[in-house]
Design a binder for these strands. Structure first.
Length: 669
RNA sequence: GCGCGUGUAGCUCAGUUGGAUAGAGCAACCGCCUCCUAAGCGGUAGGCCCCAGGUUCGAAUCCUGGCACGCGCGCCA
């Protein structure tokens, strides 16, 4: 763990600045700590001397030297050196660092703020199978949850189920009109395997069917109405379809190691009349108002704050502009728009609505974790699952939703502000990311006609049935992994091969989903996803497996188990660690120690790819070390021991980094 | 039109709060399995960091103005 050392170094320097230059708090610069481009220059670098050059009217180099004089070149941290044009570089005392921090490998994670935090992710329309786009959402959302938990927050994971929306209505239309199914037939069908796949195709057919004759859209309208008002048999069919599809999604996600605490059903928001309450609040505060005339006559609207646009010289177009700056919350026919429902839901998340759902136990997940669902009916708990957790009432909320909904998420935050909840608005975070498209090659391989529009990718469309289903992808990657495992682990039985292949496939896909910056469109390419070489999940797993193998050998052949490796480091001479020979080992240890810093950065910037990149770089360093520095075969006991320490620490940190991304390490591969 | 995002090696992408010689992976080429697993390692080659100004001791990074591409802007969600 490197952050405590950062803090100590930072404090030392600030202290020195106060002492030496009598700087007051306001004029103290921020002490930026970074890593020199080459290890021989030092382990940490501070650039504060550059920033002070102007105010102190001295050259950075002189300032750096004076700071070193003030602090003292040698300390228990290591050796501080003024170098280059004014850098302040620290050479960490390697043995001291290892003794201080590696002994506590199992020590608790650093704590960020311990506020209760709700993360909403996945939220797939419950009308068809999950596809690669949903996988990006879930992988990011789940990794975010794990990171926040690692940093000490208490997390509640919610999966929003839009069971009263257009997409569900369309599949119901497909079942009833195109397929002419009765309620009983739908029940039977929904219990069959891969009902989500069936609906995938049906949904695409309905889309085509509408396109053939627009008048058919009346079926959608009627179905939507019946869904919202609980009219049988539509509402009954809707309940069956969405329940079964949600269970399909949960099974798919569990294959990726993704679990939830609560399923929030939109229908419950309607039936619990959350909206009525929210509407009262919005009206009484003047956040929404009735539009008396014009294009939006009869609608309750919310003004859209576009204060981000700085030049306010809207002279002539003022009236016109005013019109476009209104967002309809309640339609003139009295129905609520999506934004309205979302405002109510968001208020509930923060405990600001003054109302609560009822809850039912939905089931238990792979890890044994209970999964709850909202309900508007009888809670009907049988009492065996213990008390209902206190859902909602969060201090912070993250909504993991793709970037296309930025505008609406912005409105949500704006509504909170208008309702005089600035703190909640501040802690209402839209975790946005770009969509997943298909590479041309992959789209063609799937048999889709791709017109040559000059774009390098083809947009996924659930509506058209164009996309790679999540389960298909996992199956395919797993089969490939199984082949690879069979090639290498000939003594393993089929079950063992399958188990390991599954772990590898999950890591391959999850790593693939987080390694890109969130602002980048992923042009999903099946060949790329199937690759296990280079910057991939399996590469990381392989490094961890190798490290474990070394530890295993040390234990079985030299009776050096994990405890023994860490025992008595105080008395161990530093041979093989702080000499030139130990540079590679030290490089590995220092990098391994940065996990806390990287986790902090990932959460601060919401850029989870930094975690992926870090883990990859760490694995690379290990592989370099692996090829240059034998451990078991090393004859000098001291050197062997320090290497063992490094391998142990690396294995522990990489395993944790992988776990943060929802990836396991197989026993061998 | 307005808003958001993206533009870095042949391809796919990193590049931290502005910092030292711009890095990975893939593809290409040349090497390395008596050695803790070659899903690995070493090496070669490959760059107008979209363009033009500006700020700074210092700019791929910040600011301004362009250009290109993507997404959004509905009484859909």
């Amino acid at each position: 763990m490197i952050l405590p050392l950062h803090s100590t170094l930072r404090e030392r320097i600030l202290h020195a600045l106060r002492d030496r230059y009598s700087l007051d708090e306001a004029s103290l610069p921020s002490v930026v700590i970074e890593y020199p481009p080459q290890r021989r220059m030092g382990d940490l670098a501070v650039t504060v001397a550059f920033e002070l050059a102007r105010t102190l009217r001295k050259s950075p180099r002189v300032i750096a030297q004076e700071i070193v004089e003030t602090i003292g070149a040698k300390s228990e941290l290591g050796r501080l050196e003024a170098t280059g044009a004014g850098y302040l570089n620290l050479f960490i005392d390697r043995p001291a660092f290892c003794r201080a921090w590696l002994g506590g490998i199992a020590a608790a994670a650093p704590s960020g703020d311990a506020v209760k935090t709700i993360v909403e992710h996945t939220a797939i329309n419950p009308n068809k199978a999950a596809h690669v786009g949903h996988l990006r959402n879930a992988a990011l959302g789940d990794t975010l949850c794990r990171l926040l938990t690692y940093r000490g927050a208490s997390i509640e994971v919610q999966n929003y189920i839009d069971d009263t929306g257009v997409q569900v209505a369309d599949v119901i239309v497909g079942l009833r009109v195109l397929e002419d199914k009765s309620l009983d037939e739908v029940v039977a069908l929904a219990d069959e395997d891969r009902f989500d796949y069936y609906c995938w195709d049906l949904y695409a057919r309905v889309t085509t069917w509408y396109e053939e004759d627009e008048a058919r859209l009346s079926h959608r309208r009627d179905t939507l109405h019946d869904l919202e008002h609980g009219v049988a048999p539509t509402s009954k069919i809707g309940a069956i379809v969405t329940d079964r599809i949600v269970r399909c999604h949960l099974r798919t996600m569990s294959r990726f190691g993704v679990e939830y605490d609560l399923l929030s059903w939109e229908g419950d928001i309607l039936r619990m009349q959350f909206w009525d309450r929210a509407f009262e609040i919005l009206k009484s505060t003047g956040t929404v108002f009735l539009q008396p005339e014009g294009r939006l006559a009869g609608c309750w609207v919310m003004p859209i704050d576009e204060s981000s646009a700085e030049d306010e010289d809207v002279s002539d177009d003022a009236a016109d502009a005013l019109d476009t700056r209104l967002k309809v919350i309640v339609r003139s026919n009295g129905t609520v728009t999506y934004v309205g429902k979302d405002i109510a839901y968001q208020l509930w998340k923060f405990g600001l609505l003054g109302q609560d759902f009822h809850y039912r136990l939905f089931g238990y997940q792979d890890s044994g974790r209970p999964l709850w669902a909202t309900t508007s009916g009888d809670p009907s708990t049988d009492g065996t699952q213990g008390p209902v957790p206190a859902f909602g009432q969060a201090g912070a909320v993250y909504n993991v939703i793709d970037t296309r909904q930025s505008y609406l998420q912005q409105l949500l935050i704006q509504a909170l502000t208008a309702l005089d909840h600035p703190d909640e608005a501040e802690r209402s975070v839209h975790f946005s990311y770009e969509m997943v498209a298909l590479s041309k090659a992959t789209a063609q391989a799937l048999g889709y006609q791709t017109e040559d529009n000059g774009r390098p990718f083809v947009e996924v469309s659930g509506r058209k049935g164009l996309g790679v289903k999540a389960d298909d992808l996992l199956d395919q990657v797993r089969d490939h992994a199984e082949q690879e495992v069979a090639n290498r682990q000939v003594d393993l039985d089929a079950e063992g091969r399958r188990r390991i292949a599954t772990i590898i496939a999950t890591a391959a896909i999850r790593y693939f989903m987080v390694k890109f910056s969130r602002g980048k469109v992923i042009a999903f390419d099946i060949d790329e996803a199937l690759s296990f070489e280079g910057e991939t999940g399996p590469y990381l797993q392989y490094a961890a497996v190798r490290a474990r193998k070394i530890l295993q050998k040390l234990e079985t052949e030299l009776a050096l188990d994990r405890d023994a490796i860490l025992t008595g480091l105080d008395a161990l001479p530093s041979e093989g660690l702080d000499d030139e020979e130990g540079d590679g080992l030290w490089d590995l240890v220092l990098e391994a120690s940065r996990l806390d810093e990287v986790a902090e950065q990932a959460v601060r910037t919401l850029e989870l790819s930094v975690l992926a990149k870090y883990a990859f770089g760490l694995a690379q360093r290990f592989n370099t070390f692996y090829h240059s520095s034998p451990v078991r075969a090393e004859e000098r006991e001291t050197v062997r021991r320090w290497r063992a320490v490094g391998v142990l620490y690396f294995e522990s940190q990489l395993t944790r980094a992988l776990d943060l991304m929802g990836c396991e390490v197989p026993e061998r591969m």
